[in-house]
């Protein structure tokens, strides 16, 4: 059942494959195509019941300006950026330190610590929900960007630490030993030897975390109340209520929400997949 290289098979099979490929792609991406097509559909098309056919005219510009003009989507987008960027920076910083601590030193309880970071990342959000909400209230950061940012930093640090620790453990340990023999301080070893070497891992984590945090819906839902602080995922639910019958506008909004992580993925594809599939090809 393992396909032979298509080049080895008969000409007709090769042609069949080359035809099947784009067709399957279109079927697979139908939901995305639907969003794009609907985002460009004009009001008159909708009024005439042309929901799924080929639009008679493209109304991208009208729809997008209508969305930006009549909703807070610009604010939502900005909020997503304000929440996502510091969360990534914080999680990467903490996890580089912790990953190095777990990878470069032998001490008892090392595996337990690592296991805690990993296990914590798998728990259902609901088991954290009520205490975390209460905690942000007590800290005075409920219904602020900081509530979500602090939580995201803490939570994502679990996965990032696991990732960084594995990456650092694969680095040639002789470098560290040599530096220690020279009397270089541990802190300088981290900053001048380890950090430059883990740049690819940091890039992979950054793209991955960008999509995770950007697309997160649950934590802003729990920790943010004001409409003007909502990130785009939450903003879409507002839009859903607002554009109850203007599907083209809701689709345009969805497209805008989906675009940043999609662009990030295409720009940094190699890093993204390296991050996501860590461990899938070994052990």
């Amino acid at each position: 059942m393992f396909p032979r290289p298509i080049q080895d098979s008969s000409r007709s099979r090769q042609i069949a494959y080359k035809v099947a490929l784009p067709i399957s792609l279109i079927v697979w991406l139908l939901p995305m195509i639907a969003i794009v097509a609907t985002a460009g559909r004009s009001l008159s098309d909708l009024n005439y019941g042309n929901y799924w056919g080929i639009p008679t005219e493209w109304a991208f510009i009208e729809n997008f300006s209508a969305v930006f003009g009549s909703s807070s989507i610009g604010v939502y987008l900005l909020n997503s950026v304000i929440i996502t960027v510091p969360s990534i920076v914080g999680a990467l910083f903490l996890s580089t330190l912790a990953g190095a601590g777990l990878a470069l030193y032998r001490f008892s309880g090392r595996f337990i610590l690592l296991a805690l970071f990993i296990a914590g990342n798998f728990v259902p959000f609901q088991i954290l929900m009520i205490p975390v909400r209460q905690l942000t209230l007590d800290l005075g950061v409920y219904d602020t960007y900081w509530g979500v940012i602090l939580f995201q930093i803490a939570f994502q640090t679990g996965f990032c630490t696991f990732f960084m620790r594995n990456f650092i453990a694969e680095l040639p340990f002789e470098l560290v030993e040599a530096a220690r023999a020279e009397g270089v301080s541990e802190w300088k070893i981290l900053v001048h030897i380890i950090v430059p070497l883990v740049r690819p891992a940091l890039a992979a984590l950054a793209v991955l975390q960008f999509t995770f945090i950007w697309n997160d819906f649950f934590w802003p839902l729990i920790l943010i109340q004001s409409d003007e602080l909502r990130p785009i995922t939450l903003g879409l639910t507002t839009l859903k209520g607002q554009y109850i019958s203007s599907f083209n506008l809701l689709a345009a909004g969805s497209l805008i929400a989906a675009l940043p992580p999609v662009m990030m993925f295409f720009a940094m594809q190699r890093h993204f997949i390296a991050g996501l599939t860590l461990g899938a090809s070994k052990g």
């Binding site: 330190l97 728990v123 954290l128 205490p131 803490a154």
Partner: peptide, 21 residues
């Protein structure tokens, strides 16, 4: 040093994940 390196991450993780469980 490993404890110093791990402490900040562990503190955050304990406060926002482990203790809430």
């Amino acid at each position: 040093m490993p404890l110093v390196f791990i402490a900040p991450a562990f503190a955050m993780f304990s406060i926002f994940v482990i203790y809430p469980i």
